[in-house]
């Protein structure tokens, strides 16, 4: 009689299919789901969010127009990272003197050509372009 409960348990155990957990944990699935998500496009609005004066506002509007309607149709010709337009709008926003900003932009535009001296810049790993931020 003592063996009866154990026997019943064993019979039940073999009668029903084993409740097997799926090998992939929920965390694995969650991580795997992120693998092929398309990359988010560059958000240029971040660059023109804060405008301190009318000059900056005007350049911001021009920049957004250029980025959305002109540059979007252009071939990938700029050799630098960030591109010349982004460099220009950053100069306008960060340089105190707009004359200095204009000079820096002019300097950058003159340097941007396929024969740029490659030894002078670090190479951006993501884009393969010459890294030249406004801090340089």
């Amino acid at each position: 009689m003592k063996l009866l409960p154990a026997t019943i348990f064993l019979i039940l155990l073999f009668c029903f299919p084993a409740a097997k957990t799926f090998a992939q944990s929920q965390n694995d699935i969650v991580l795997a789901k992120t693998l092929f998500i398309p990359k988010a496009k560059d958000d240029f609005k971040q660059l023109v969010k804060v405008n301190k004066n009318e000059i900056e506002s005007t350049f911001s509007v021009m920049f957004m127009f250029y980025k959305n309607f002109i540059s979007s149709q252009d071939i990938d010709a700029c050799v630098f990272q960030p591109s010349c337009s982004v460099y220009a709008i950053e100069c306008i926003h960060h340089e105190k003197s707009k004359i200095t900003a204009s000079l820096k932009i002019a300097d950058r535009l003159m340097r941007c050509h396929p024969l740029v001296s490659s030894g002078s810049y670090l190479i951006d790993r993501k884009t393969g372009k010459y890294f030249d931020p406004i801090e340089n």
């Binding site: 957990t21 799926f22 699935i29 789901k33 693998l35 092929f36 398309p38």
Partner: peptide
């Protein structure tokens, strides 16, 4: 290419949804 990749990702998400515990 972006459209292809976006569609691929949608299908991939559906497959993983099936493989996930909930669907199981």
């Amino acid at each position: 290419i972006e459209q292809q990749l976006a569609m691929r990702n949608n299908s991939y998400q559906a497959i993983l949804e099936l493989l996930g515990t909930q669907k199981f």
